[in-house]
Each structure stands twice: as structure tokens, then as C-alpha cells.
Amino acid sequence: MTFEQLIFYVLAGIAVIASLMMISVNNPVKAALWLVLAFIATAGVWITAQAEFLGIVLILVYAGAVMVLFLFVVMMLDINLVKLKEGFTRYLPIGVLASVAIFAMMYMVLGPAHFGLDKTGEPIKFSADHSNTTMLGLQLYTVHAYAFILAAVLLLVGIVAAIALTIRRRPTHEVLYQDIDKQVKVQAKDRFKMVKMKATKEEPIKKKKEDE
């Protein structure tokens, strides 16, 4: 076994164990942390495959940003685990049967018989000064420029959808809104009203009797 293979098996092993722990632990916060570990191990695998940009992005974006957000959500929600686990033992046999069957089939198709080195060929090894970032950038902004723009549209739709679903304008009698149109258009006469009144003599205020 070469040193490279050793690193791969260690990282892949960590990733598999972390994923298993992630779906089996009770505490959702711990599950999220296991997922972070799985991401980091996967990022390591990518880096050994000379895809260092993807590996770093995986750590920065997924482990750094997405999972932190997700942890916030998990901590805010009051999840009733007992209720979620209801019927677990009842469905367990069917679940195990289905997953074993699917795993067996996937192993037959995805195993070395179809994806072995003799089938796919050994991956190209790049020299140390090779930049994964440049290569990705070139692909992304030339060949896949159309898909890249579409991905931007997808994000835009996501933002519009999220805002449309969460913004709640309360009626104006409950909350005062700034209406910029109105503020710009306002003129002195709307705000300041001259009222002419005849001068009248005010009755002297009678002093109240202060009875003890």
C-alpha cells in the first residue's frame, strides 16, 4: 500500500464513520457536528485527488457557513425526538430489507467490476505547480458559462422566493412605514397649516377651590 492509498483509506474511513454517526446519534446538534467531520474528511479526499479548490470550498462553504446556519436552526427549533422516532421498530425490518437490497445492487454496479482502474484508466497526475482553480475557472467561464448564468438565476429565484414567503407587511394602523414617495413629494403646505383666527379675549381661568 502506498502512502497515498493509506491517506485515502483513512480519510474515506473517517467520512463513512462520521456519516453513519450522523444519522444514528440522537442529538441533532451532535449529528450536525458529525456531518461537519464528514465534510472535512471528504474535502481531504478531494485534495488528494488534486482538486484543492473544491476541497477548500467544501470546508469554507459547507462546514463553515451552511452548517453554522443549520446549527442555529436546529438550536432554535424544539424538535420532539420521541415523536419522530415513533414507529421506528415497526418499519425497521422493511427499511433494513430495502436498504440491504439497494446496497447489494449498487455494489454490483458501482463496484470495481464496472469502475475499476482497468475500466476508467488511472487519473491524470498533474505536477505541483498545476492550479486546480485556474482549470475550474476556465471551464466555468467558457464552456459552462450558460449553465453558470442559469445557476445565478436559480439563486435569484431562491432569494425572491424566500423574501416573498417571509415578508409580512403589517397593516399601517399597527406599524408606521416610511413611504419615500410621500416624503419626497411632500410640500410645505401639507405639513404646515396657517390658521387665521380672530383674536379673542380669553376668560380668566377660575381658580379651583382646593378643599382638603
Binding site: 449553465a147 442559469l150 436559480l154 429565484v157 431562491g158 422566493a161 424566500a162 416573498a164 414567503l165 409580512r168
Partner: peptide
């Protein structure tokens, strides 16, 4: 004419439709 654009197009459509259904909160 490409799996990526096909998939992204499908997602743009679906995401917009999920939101449209949920808009009647």
C-alpha cells in the same frame, strides 16, 4: 442539450413553483 442545463432549468422551474404554492401563507 446538456445534462447540467437540463437540471438547472428543472430546478429554476421547481423552486419557483414551490414558492408560488406556499405564498398563501
Amino acid at each position: 442539450y446538456n445534462f447540467i442545463t437540463l437540471f438547472v432549468g428543472l430546478e429554476i422551474m421547481s423552486l419557483a413553483m414551490y414558492a408560488m404554492i406556499a405564498m398563501q401563507r
